[in-house]
Amino acid sequence: MFNYNFRWNQALNSLPQMLEGALVTIEIALLSMLIGIAVAILLTVFRLSGNRILSAIATTWVEIARNTPALFQIYMVHFGLGGFGIHLSPFLSLLIGIAFNNAGYLAENFRGALKAIPDTQARAARSLGMSAGKAFRHVVMPQMLRISFLPMTNQMVWAILMTSLGAVVAMNTDLYGVTSELNARTFRTFELFAIAAVIFYVITKAITLSARVLAARLFRY
């Protein structure tokens, strides 16, 4: 059945390079997550502002991010902006593409979380003399972030998985890029990608577990 010689040694020799790639992957995912959260909060404020133009911007962003493939979004950042004469490096294109996607999904999560926070709280804060901005920052936002902690963890896992889409913009320093470059040189496709798969699995598990520990420490009453 197996006429195939597995050469795990050869593939394992390139493990250090792949682990370096894994670091880049984590870096991109973390950065894209930070940018994504910041933008998502901004979009949520836009939606709450009652200004028609601002909330239209937020809605458009969220709907595009949620209704087109992430691959398309990254492609659009790299080649679409190229049409305007803006040429970004693969790293930046990937980062911006994933951050765009994250922001859209997170803004929707935040909206769901806001529904769980009673209006009376914001009103009570206002009647205590806080400005609208202060009431949002000190009363509503912390609760919103707490409620959407689990969806945020999921989005972080998604961000890790999405870094593999850098392939489409010739990204070659993240885990997927490194693996496919090694593959182009050695043709040990199965072995190399199996190792990459294991690394991805370990990273995502580490994130979910540490998020669980973090949640238990942060959110105990």
Binding site: V157, L161, M162, T163, S164, L165, A167, Y176, T189, F190, F193, A194, A196, A197, F200, Y201, T204, K205
Partner: peptide, 15 residues
Amino acid sequence: RSIPLLIQLVLANAF
């Protein structure tokens, strides 16, 4: 659910 779809496809194809 923990491995990128792209890698699943490459792996399955190679396998």
